[in-house]
Amino acid sequence: MIRTLHPSQRCEVWVASVGGQAELVYSTDDVLLEAPNWTLDGGALVLNGDGKLWRLDLSTRSLDAVPLTGVPDLNNDHVLAPDGETIFLSANDGHIYRASLSGGPASLITEEDGTFHFLHGVSPDGKELAYVGIEAGDFTQPGKLMTIASDGGATARVDVGPGHCDGPEYSPDGKWLYLNTESFTSAPGHAQLARVRVDGSVFEQLLESGTVDWFPHLSPDGQYSTYVRFPIGTEGHPADLPVAVVLVSTEDWTTPLHTWPLFGGQGTLNVNSWSPDSGRFAFVAYPRGDSFQDSAKD
């Protein structure tokens, strides 16, 4: 399903720094943009919206659709390949595709295996993808952590327990997958941050909190991570909630360096949005009425 803005709601794309500053770089009430990636040249953000892929030039603040063909409507799971020229995409048909970031035809990677495939991570060498598999698209069932070669073929499961998991993303050295999981608790929806060795040999919780924590994204240098903090008791990662984007040092996940409260959730920070120099990251807010801009200055 393609998400749209509610009446009186806006979409705001923000860029924040590890120093705590935040800048509004784009605002629209026409299209609901989601899940920014940062291009390798540092000059643009790549987002989805209205089932399409968009490129937001950070110097001109212009938004242009990437002209893709041969792919169904897109969702907010897309990640750039290490070459900076290729992008991997999840579509609403439950499959993963590969395309050029400049546009053109997309090619199908996953096969019909009875599951929906939600992409989140690309290995540093570009040879492997990490995704969440949901049996028959039945969202009452827990998602499973899966991997597949980036050119397709056989899939493999990485065991992270029985609880639902999401957002698997490779560490910069390629040795770990960072994710959120409900395997550490019996409380419904109580996602916590974790990591697992790519071979499944070590599985550990990164932060024990009372909130619902989703989508850990490591900076390219591995020194920082962002994640989205949902309210206590949240099940899944729904839209239109008071959430917070949190910045931490990977040496201390328990002490936030900076926190940005906003109205959002789904679409705010679903994929890695770090700049290539590890100094900034992007996220999306969906305010109704008062702008997030005022609180971002606090």
Rank of each mutant, 00 (worst) to 15 (best):
L5T: 05
S90V: 01
S123R: 03
T86Y: 10
D138C: 07
G84Q: 08
F292T: 10
L32T: 04
G84V: 01
W214I: 09
V79W: 09
V212S: 00
S123F: 08
Y97F: 14
S27I: 05
P162W: 12
E85H: 05
L32N: 03
S102L: 13
T255F: 07
P105D: 14
S278I: 03
P124M: 14
H78V: 06
D29W: 06
N272A: 02
L129M: 13
R157C: 06
N180M: 10
G103M: 06
T39K: 04
T211F: 15
G133Q: 11
Y170W: 15
S275D: 10
P7M: 01
D173P: 02
D30A: 02
G121V: 09
T254W: 05
T259A: 11
L53T: 08
G152V: 12
A156S: 15
G137Q: 05
A282N: 12
V248E: 13
Y131P: 06
T181Y: 07
Y170Q: 04
T155I: 14
D277P: 08
H120Y: 15
E182N: 03
S8N: 14
L5D: 07
L207F: 07
L74D: 12
D29Y: 03
L89K: 01
C11D: 12
L56H: 02
P220V: 06
P276C: 07
R157V: 08
C165M: 15
Q293I: 11
D294I: 05
V246E: 11
V212Q: 00
V246N: 06
E208M: 04
F139Y: 15
Q192T: 02
R229L: 13
L247Q: 11
A35K: 00
E204D: 09
G20N: 02
P231L: 08
L269D: 11
Y131E: 12
S8M: 11
L119G: 04
V245R: 01
E34S: 12
E204Q: 10
D173K: 05
S102T: 15
L206N: 04
T250V: 14
L68R: 00
A130G: 13
D73P: 02
T234G: 06
H258E: 13
L129V: 06
L193C: 10
T234W: 11
T250F: 03
D240G: 07
G49R: 00
V13K: 01
S186R: 15
G42Q: 09
D30G: 10
F118Q: 07
